[in-house]
Amino acid sequence: MTFSMKSSQKCGLIILLGLLAFAVLGSWLSPYTISQQDLNAILEPPNAQHWLGTDHFGRSMFTRMAYAVGLSFALGLVCVMTSALLGTFLGVWAAWSGKQVDGVLGVFVNILLALPGLVIVLLLAAIAPGSFLMLYLAISLVQWVEYFRVVRAVTQAVVQSPARQSSQMMGFGRWYQFKRHIWPAIAPSVFTLAAFGGANAILTMASLGFIYVGIQPPLAELGLMTVELFPYYSEAPWLLVQPLVVIALIVFGFHLLAGKRI
């Protein structure tokens, strides 16, 4: 299968790769750690020692931003992988394995859909505040439903198609039928959903950080940094701007990458 990307999608990919490079290189090259305080140099503007300035405890913003971006990407990636795999698998299973499986999965999905996604995440996150694992599980649980519904709808049509029926009659197994018939039909939608899903996962984590339910201090997280730096917005606006701009860039990058297909 070949991927032909539009220029806007390439642009989105470049933004995301740039941020990723910043996260990796930043954490690796910086001489400071994320919790290393220097109370003699607080709220400094960008300078030669601290390229992005320091926060209200004199911690290096460059190091903290790199760590936070890395954390966001890590969470986005694992959430997308998990929910895409789970949603796709269950969607194909529901469409392919008859009415009973479809019915049971349908009921479960409808229950999940009846509750607002952010509320479910909030509930689970509040059980164990600051746990990355819990955040990951909660966000994945909310996100796989989208994949499930799209994949199920597309697969139903493919399962009924003469092309798949003909392959089955010629003796090809289920994996082959998935590979040749179902996957080519669902792949574009799954990739688009994954791009939006990545943005959503990161945004959800930032929202939870912003209300102190997500990742806990002293760790660096984009939402948490926003709320921590909020009191200093008039003295050091350059600090508050950093996490906000990065969140906007990440979401923008993912949405560009998704393209206009859905």
């Binding site: 092309a163 003909s166 009659m169 040749r180 018939h181 080519p184």
Partner: peptide, 14 residues
């Protein structure tokens, strides 16, 4: 085996 009415819909384009 079966031969279908509409050939393009009976052969995958992937």
């Amino acid at each position: 085996l079966k031969l279908y009415q509409d050939p393009p819909s009976a052969v995958t384009s992937s």
